[in-house]
Design a protein around this nucleic acid. Structure first.
Lengths: 218, 218
DNA sequence: CGCAACTTTGAGAAGAGTCAAGACTGGTGG
DNA sequence: CCACCAGTCTTGACTCTTCTCAAAGTTGCG
């Protein structure tokens, strides 16, 4: 189903100025795919609102989510001609799409965008390094604690419960665990009073930051 | 022992033109550290000869190697003021060092270097994505098969045995396994005639590429 | 309200880790 | 040139974390 996204992209693109340069705004609904592994990589994107997951699939269905991108982050830029991972909206999201060719023009129009893109690529690489350490060397408890602290840090301005934008399955595929292990670990954290799960399963409150940070070794 | 490296680095830096821009050549001996996690990130590097490993350590000593960099690859560029991982030479290696400030000058001198750096960052991100999939979702056998095929592809121009530049411990820390599991998996591959280990433990020959590629799911 | 999708929980299996010992390699010095 | 030693690698026995399979409990959307 291509609704708003296409309407906006095709007849008369809605060009937004600001951020860094000109871009085309796209509105995505929950679960909607922005691009898939193997698609031509003519565009790259910046998250305006909502959250995007980027993932890779093995032929037998095993999935690894490489990152959750929140507002302000740039993603989808490729070295080759095609995208090397899939990007989907976690819930509703809006993104600004940029033609990849923008970067190739040597006009200094694109100077600012270019710098933003390089900085963003380096930050993504940083995050990827950190995530490889988590995937390769941390225990299930450490992984879940790291994830919760990271999400709270990025989504929350202070204390209190907050709503995770992703399912247990997304969390599992991000942390290299199964949904059962994620669920069991959250239950254990609840029993140990590290967190509270107030009924609706995507809401969470971190109660014992100190203990969570101890689990989140570094 | 600081030999050529210091001679070159200190009195009158040997400036090399070519590649993309000016750089300072450094010679590293086996195991020598180029920079550590937390060091000021005033320089970034391009591998000229040999191989470099980049890694992160947890406080209790667990280590994750993020990448092995072979000739031609750029690494060590950071978003912040300090390096977020350690870089060490696997065996002897030479690298070209660039001042990070090169990139900040808007002169079009640095245009070409800048482009090379962005391309390199994107390629690194690509590799990181692929490696996260391996770390999070592949079995020990699949990890080792993927590693062997990748190394053979990067180090070898065709058939025949080749010498891995890294120890079992490096391989284990790269694949998120223990050295025992790496060793057992290589032994199993040998029993199954997928590879041959001709005495000297770092030499290896891939005998059954077809079977290895089947293990290396994608 | 009802059903599909998601989440939790349990029991058992298995892949990879740990601990321990022995073999091999490669470099050093006699 | 050979012997020795430290470091590296392999192998074995056993443990344990996490996965798998199964079922019951929730949630939330239509």
């Amino acid at each position: 189903m291509q609704t708003l996204a296409n309407v906006i992209r095709m007849p008369t693109p809605l060009v937004v100025r600001g951020a860094a340069s000109a871009g085309v705004l796209e509105v995505l609904r929950k679960g909607e795919e922005l691009f898939a592994e193997g698609d031509a990589a003519d565009w790259f994107y910046k998250v305006m609102t909502g959250a995007i997951r980027t993932s890779k699939l093995l032929s037998d269905g095993r999935r690894q989510i490489g990152a959750f991108h929140l507002a302000g982050e740039i993603f989808g830029l490729e070295a080759g001609e095609v995208h090397r991972f899939t990007a989907e909206a976690l819930a509703g999201a809006t993104v600004l799409a940029f033609r990849r060719t923008c970067l190739e023009l040597s006009a200094h129009d694109s100077e600012a965008l270019r710098e933003e893109v390089l900085a963003s690529a380096i930050r993504s690489l940083d995050r990827a390094q950190e995530h490889m350490l988590l995937l390769g060397r941390k225990t299930a408890q450490e992984k879940v604690a790291a994830f919760l602290l990271d999400m709270a840090d990025r989504m929350l301005d202070g204390e209190g419960p907050f709503e995770l934008p992703m399912s247990r399955s997304d969390i599992a595929d991000y942390l290299g665990l199964t949904i059962e292990t994620v669920s069991r670990t959250l239950s254990q954290f609840t029993r140990d009073s590290l967190i509270r799960l107030p009924a609706a399963s995507r809401w969470i409150e971190l109660c014992n930051l100190h203990a969570l940070r101890q689990l989140n070794v570094s």
